[in-house]
């Protein structure tokens, strides 16, 4: 039962993040790139204010998988690095913390480009 509740929380919180994104798409004319940027910056701000960590503890993947989680990870990395190395940490912490994600995106993007061709998007019935 606990496991079910855990997944339900991840589903609901993650879904809610996407719902807000969809509202932004439908009601404002924000382009996808702008929404992605807003989410990451919002994540940095919320993470910096210490609001996001409790949400991660509550919802797990529901809070880490959306791009706000990426932002909060940046904030967390910077905070820990500043604690350790002082001001230098402001410049090293962010990329360190999200190195796995960015490197994976670049590397798998490169691999995918080697393996696949761009789609025809033929408008099928």
């Amino acid at each position: 039962m606990d496991v079910f509740l855990e997944y339900l929380k991840a589903f609901l919180v993650g879904g809610a993040f996407c719902l807000v994104g969809q509202l932004l798409i439908d009601l404002t004319k924000l382009t996808p790139a702008r929404i992605l940027v807003s989410y990451v910056v919002a994540g940095v701000v919320l993470g910096g204010l210490g609001v996001y960590q409790p949400l991660i503890e509550f919802a797990g993947g529901g809070a880490t998988v959306p791009l706000t989680g990426f932002g909060s990870l940046l904030a967390k990395g910077v905070r820990e690095a500043v604690d350790k190395d002082g001001l230098l940490g402001a410049f090293t912490g962010g990329l360190n913390a999200c190195a796995a994600g960015i490197t994976a995106a670049v590397f798998f993007g490169f691999l995918a480009a080697l393996c696949f061709k761009s789609g025809s998007k033929i408008n099928e019935k």
């Binding site: 798409i25 996808p32 696949f116 761009s118 789609g119 025809s120 998007k121 408008n123």
Partner: peptide, 18 residues
């Protein structure tokens, strides 16, 4: 051509833009 126009004016073809 849908695909060449999409590449020039909008997004890459495999991008999930709405």
């Amino acid at each position: 051509h849908f695909s060449s126009a999409e590449r020039q004016f909008r997004f890459p073809l495999n991008y999930g833009g709405v």
